[in-house]
Amino acid sequence: MEAEEAEAAAPRPGPRRRRRTAVLIGGAAVLGLIAGGCAGYLVQVHRAPTKLPSLAQPVVAQAKGEGPEPLSAARDRRVKTDGDLRKLLLEKPRGARDATRLMGRDGWLDLAAYTSFYEKPGEMFGEIVGDEFRRAAVTGWLVGRTHEVEIRLVQFRQEETLAAAENVENTQYWVEDEGGTDSWAIPGSGNGRVYVHTRPETKPGYLPVYTAEAHAWRGDIGLEMWITDTKPISKAKIMDLAERQMERL
Results as ranks from 00 to 15, higher is better:
Lys235Leu: 09
Gly104Pro: 02
Trp141Leu: 00
Arg145Leu: 12
Arg97Gly: 08
Ile227His: 00
Gly126Met: 07
Arg145Met: 09
Ala214Asp: 09
Trp174Met: 15
Phe156Gly: 12
Asp84Val: 03
Thr228Arg: 12
Gln245Asn: 09
Thr211Glu: 11
Val43Arg: 14
Leu109Ile: 14
Gly219Pro: 08
Gln172His: 05
Leu102Lys: 02
Leu111Thr: 08
Leu102Thr: 03
Ala185Pro: 11
Glu119Leu: 11
Glu178Ala: 14
Pro53Met: 06
Val196Ile: 08
Ala212Glu: 02
Leu88Pro: 07
Gly107Pro: 01
Glu150Cys: 02
Trp184Met: 02
Arg157Cys: 04
Lys237Pro: 01
Ala8Ile: 03
Ile233Phe: 02
Asp177Gly: 14
Gly32Asn: 02
Gly179Lys: 11
Leu33Cys: 09
Gln155Met: 08
Glu148Thr: 07
Pro208Ser: 09
Tyr114Ile: 10
Trp174Ser: 15
Asp98Asn: 07
His46Gly: 12
Arg101Gln: 01
Lys231Arg: 13
Phe117Lys: 11
Ala212Gly: 02
Met225Glu: 08
Glu169Asp: 14
Pro49Lys: 03
Gly180Pro: 04
Ser54Ile: 09
Thr139Ile: 11
Gln62Ala: 15
Ser189Glu: 00
Gly26Arg: 09
Ala96Ile: 05
Ala48Glu: 14
Leu33Thr: 06
Glu201Arg: 09
Phe133Ser: 04
Thr21Leu: 15
Leu52Pro: 15
Pro11Lys: 03
Glu119Val: 12
Pro49Met: 04
Arg199Trp: 11
Tyr210Leu: 04
Thr139His: 05
Gly179Cys: 01
Val196Gly: 05
Trp217Pro: 00
Met246Val: 07
Leu42Met: 07
Arg244Gln: 08
Val79Gln: 13
Pro15Asn: 09
Ser234Thr: 13
Gly180Leu: 04
Trp184Tyr: 08
Arg134Asn: 14
Pro70Cys: 03
Pro49Cys: 07
Lys87Val: 14
Pro232Arg: 00
Arg244Ile: 00
Ala73His: 10
Ala73Pro: 09
Ala56Thr: 13
Pro58Tyr: 03
Leu89Met: 10
Gln245Cys: 10
Pro11Ile: 05
Lys120Leu: 11
Lys237Thr: 14
Asp84Gln: 03
Ala39Asp: 02
Asp98Gln: 05
Gly37Arg: 07
Thr115Asp: 06
Glu69Gln: 13
Gln245Tyr: 05
Ala137Arg: 05
Ala73Ser: 13
Pro204Lys: 08
Ala39Glu: 01
Asp229Val: 04
Trp141Phe: 03
Pro121Met: 05
Val143Trp: 01
Ser54Val: 12
